[in-house]
Design a protein around this nucleic acid. Structure first.
Lengths: 215, 215
DNA sequence: GGCCTTCCTGACCGTATGGTCAAATTCAGA
DNA sequence: TCTGAATTTGACCATACGGTCAGGAAGGCC
């Protein structure tokens, strides 16, 4: 998706619609923010990646911080989408298993976004603190209820739902955030399809058995 | 440890020994790099935190990059120390259990360092790539051998050791790197002793049962 | 005390950065 | 074709940053 929009820069017409210009810039910004962090990223570099003059960026996004904020919000939306899978499931094996699959897919397809999010939270969430306190808190509490119900129904062991969620987030996002380290330990090459499948399988095996959702 | 050195800034004498001055600066730098990232950190801010004039920093650490490199190396040493526990263990339950404890303790006591490391790796490890390729690769391969032996001896299920290690790293470091998110979801307060214990217990329960090292 | 090494620091410099602006360009609709 | 709103852009600005340097201060040692 990120490549899709970025791969079609200023083709025929010289004037862009607001929508596609913003998408192009957001895509470039996501990449640069992921690689350099907020402080290390420069508007000039983002402009170069987007193939636009710097002044044009400021036309669509008045300040660097505003641009950054939109990038983070974009990720958060994707992040939340994986939530649906959780609710629609019948039990822990299906629900948590599918959630792991979904989050691993996000780690693979939206690695840059994941890094931006991680960076933001690591630095104390200066721009999305309100999201953490509202949306994320609500989402978390909702999922805790679901897990507690599963436990009450005897469908999994009495694990603290909160720490289980942290483990799910940590493990899946690790493949995006620490992708470079994993690639290095993989001989310098990114994981191939088979290895991604192996990763998902291993995680699901350990966690689902670990919480007593499977034998 | 970080606080110990930082808590005794220029008391009586005006002149510091190289060793204590460097320790003071490294401690301040770790904090600032963790909060702002490499690009976002400024020598001026580090100097302010250390309580020294900026020019004094450049006396001990000629460039920002050199200072940063030393901070990262310092963390890496601590990181590797937790390895010993792994080897001295008799089996997976003891070895991995103790490793989780040790890494959780590091996450709690050296949260800033962990964040600096995470930031560095996330941005492609520009300054410690050689460490990843040599020391970390060797360490990882050594641990994989140990785990494979345990599997061969039937003391745990046939899990891919590599992905198990990633899960251990991810889960334990999450409590440092995403500490702010966890604190927010905890009502805005840091985890207390009891909660840290609960976290450790939950992680050990899930993983040790998940890999078939306990019933 | 005299000397020399080490340490300290205010003032300074070149550069790069985020952001501004006014003039030019494009294009849809009347 | 004309008009006006939307878009594009090079040139420009003030600031903040990493780093330098020369001169001063401390303190160990004879």
């Amino acid at each position: 998706m990120a490549e899709t929009t970025a791969a079609s820069p200023k083709a025929t017409s010289k004037k862009m619609r607001r929508q596609e210009a913003e998408a192009l810039i957001l895509s470039a910004a996501e990449k640069v923010f992921a690689e350099a962090g907020f402080g290390g990223a420069t508007m000039q570099l983002i402009a170069d990646v987007a193939g636009l003059p710097k002044a044009n960026l400021h036309y669509y996004f008045p300040t660097k911080e505003l641009l950054y904020r939109q990038v983070v919000q974009k990720i958060f939306q994707i992040w939340l989408q994986a939530a649906d899978i959780f609710d629609q499931a019948d039990g822990p094996e299906e629900g948590i298993g599918a959630y792991i699959d979904a989050k691993m897919e996000i780690s693979r397809r939206h690695a840059d976004g994941s890094k931006v999010w991680a960076s933001e939270v690591m630095h104390g969430a200066p721009v999305i603190q309100d999201y953490l306190e509202t949306t994320l808190t609500d989402w978390t509490n909702g999922r805790i209820e679901v897990i507690e119900r599963w436990i009450a129904e005897g469908r999994m062991a009495p694990i603290d739902p909160r720490h289980l969620l942290y483990m799910l987030w940590a493990t899946t996002q690790h493949y995006a955030d620490f992708g470079h380290q994993i690639d290095t330990l993989n001989g310098g090459s990114p994981l191939n399809d088979k290895q991604w499948e192996a990763a998902k399988t291993n995680i699901k095996t350990i966690i689902l058995r670990g919480i007593g959702a499977v034998e």
